[in-house]
């Protein structure tokens, strides 16, 4: 038997080359699930060590904290308060970011006027703005929306604007040769071409809104996951801190999946 034959019969293994694919879906799902399972197991095991358990609550403690929070009627109020802040801040920010980034993409003069401000505020963490926002708006709900708004707005504008700049200029030229006017270029080419970037901005925006939630609720709140985490930390109640963190993570995961689903539905042509 020559080498080639041995390779075909499996006697000699063919070299496996990297192809950077996701691999077998079943294997992937098994690995995903077992990774979570092992993670929780490790978490359970290390919290058996008392010195670790002082700052890291065990899974059972988090579950009983969940029971207490639900019993006390706080848990769902917290979730609702936070979700509302995240969604209001996020939606208003995205709704403002879309026209602003299109104006920047369309008019070089608007771009020249707005760009320096975007570049400046991008690098400032929203948490640094809290004192100013509190001074301006007190401890109101508006203060919380504002913090989330700023963070989501900046990230969305940058993403959508980048997308608009990357629109294939040949498509614009082609449309012009059919007799399109500027308004047609805007409505029929720029908006659909930039649409996928709006969806990317939405996903980044949701993640940003959630990561800014704790900062936004530092402006004083009775209910809210961020506020709960901050106050539990002051009482050294680590299980409630962990519960809050896990809850935010799960909400983020669900919202991201929803947006991913919408993206898949709306950009089948990609």
């Amino acid at each position: 038997m020559d080498e080639q034959e041995k390779a075909l019969t499996g006697e000699i293994k063919m070299r496996k080359l990297k192809d950077f694919s996701d691999g077998n879906p079943t294997t992937r799902n098994i690995l995903n699930v077992s990774s979570i399972f092992v993670g929780v197991l490790v978490w359970f095991l290390i919290t058996l060590i008392p010195s670790i358990n002082t700052f890291l609550a065990s899974p059972q403690q988090v579950i009983s904290a969940l029971g207490q929070e639900v019993q006390a009627g706080r848990y769902f109020k917290d979730i609702w308060a936070s979700l509302q802040r995240v969604l209001v801040g996020f939606i208003v920010a995205l709704a403002c970011a879309i026209p602003v980034s299109f104006l920047m993409g369309w008019y070089p003069k608007v771009r020249a006027l707005i760009d320096p401000w975007i570049q400046f505020f991008r690098t400032i963490p929203p948490i640094a703005l809290i004192p100013l926002v509190i001074l301006a708006m007190g401890l109101s709900e508006m203060a919380k929306y504002t913090i989330i708004f700023i963070a989501v707005f900046l990230v969305s504008v940058v993403t959508i604007y980048q997308g608009i700049r990357e629109v294939d200029k040949t498509l614009v030229k082609a449309a012009y040769t059919f007799g399109a006017r500027d308004i047609n270029i805007f409505l029929s080419v720029m908006i659909p071409a930039a649409f996928p970037f709006i969806l990317v901005a939405a996903r980044l925006g949701i993640a940003t809104a959630l990561t800014t939630l704790i900062a936004s609720e530092m402006t004083g709140a009775t209910y809210g996951l961020g506020a709960r985490i901050t106050s539990a930390q002051q009482f050294m109640n680590v299980s409630v801190v962990l519960l809050g963190i896990i809850t935010i993570g799960i909400i983020g995961f669900i919202l991201d999946r929803v947006l991913l689903f919408v993206e898949k539905k709306l950009t089948k042509w990609k």
Partner: peptide, 13 residues
């Protein structure tokens, strides 16, 4: 004047 581009210029959506 119709133009046909090397890169097709079809609207992907």
């Amino acid at each position: 004047r119709g133009v046909i581009f090397q890169q097709y210029a079809l609207f992907p959506w």
